[in-house]
């Protein structure tokens, strides 16, 4: 099969603005978009830049926009796109560093803000916490998150409101506060009780749609909202007593 790859190129500051470059790619075998990109780089233009590592959809390096769809290049098979013209763009909402490589810093910063680590009780338990699997069931889907950034870059709120933490960080926060081992105080996680936090979400669920690992970050955000409201009410009732 023959394909035309239209790849967005940009090398700031030399390039004034991004542009598309066409490459011809032919293969008889079933290849992933990542394999195709590597082949194009090796055979046609060694300066083409993109990130990759595991090639098995677990490291989260190769998120990009492929024919308009947000996905990992390694798990997207070229033939599955059912088109001989394939348009490849870097993830939006993040600054392009070079070609398909984007600056993930704002994404990591948002993650840091939620204190993305378990706050366990102080004393170490000699044989670990005891938790039944059912208690973890609610958070299992969030554990699948590989922090690839697809949800962040598709999110319309992220694109218009720079305060917004984005789906991945908020879902992570929910995963942590819902963990039976987490003892972080309300004062800690209620910091997301803001427009830049849990209330920023537009509930149009683009993040759920694009997640390559079938995580539904918006579920986590909604659950966070409910938890925030419930905690608030509890507090008011306690005060009134």
């Amino acid at each position: 099969m023959e394909y035309i790859f239209e790849i967005l190129r940009y090398d700031p500051p030399q390039d004034k603005s991004p542009y598309f470059q066409e490459f011809l790619y032919s293969t008889e075998e079933s290849k992933s978009v990542l394999e195709a990109l590597m082949n194009i780089r090796n055979e046609q233009d060694c300066t083409l830049s993109f990130r990759y590592s595991c090639r098995e959809a677990i490291c989260g390096s190769c998120g990009m926009v492929i024919n308009g769809k947000f996905d990992l290049a390694c798990r997207t098979m070229v033939e599955s796109l059912e088109s001989d013209r394939i348009i490849i763009e870097p993830m939006p909402n993040l600054k392009i560093q070079k070609d398909l490589v984007v600056d993930m810093e704002p994404f990591w910063e948002a993650l840091h803000k939620i204190e993305p680590f378990l706050h366990p009780q102080k004393e170490i338990l000699e044989r670990g916490h005891r938790i039944e699997e059912e208690e973890m069931e609610k958070i299992l889907q969030y554990i699948n998150c590989i922090l690839c950034g697809c949800c962040y870059s598709v999110c319309p709120v992220v694109s218009r409101d720079e305060r917004y933490l984005g789906p991945a960080a908020l879902a992570k926060l929910y995963r942590l506060v819902k963990d039976p081992r987490d003892k972080r105080p309300f004062s800690n996680w209620s910091r997301v009780n803001t427009e830049g936090g849990a209330w920023g979400c537009d509930t149009i669920f683009k993040c759920n749609e694009v997640c390559p690992k079938d995580v539904r970050p918006a579920d986590g955000i909604e659950a966070l909202r409910r938890k925030l409201v419930v905690e608030k009410i509890k507090r008011i009732l306690r005060l009134n007593k």
């Binding site: 938790i131 973890m136 081992r181």
Partner: peptide
Amino acid sequence: AIYELEYFGVPFSRFPGGVI
């Protein structure tokens, strides 16, 4: 080492009774 990882938050699969 395993118990330390558990303490840090690793969500190990569990047996009934809640042990790793």
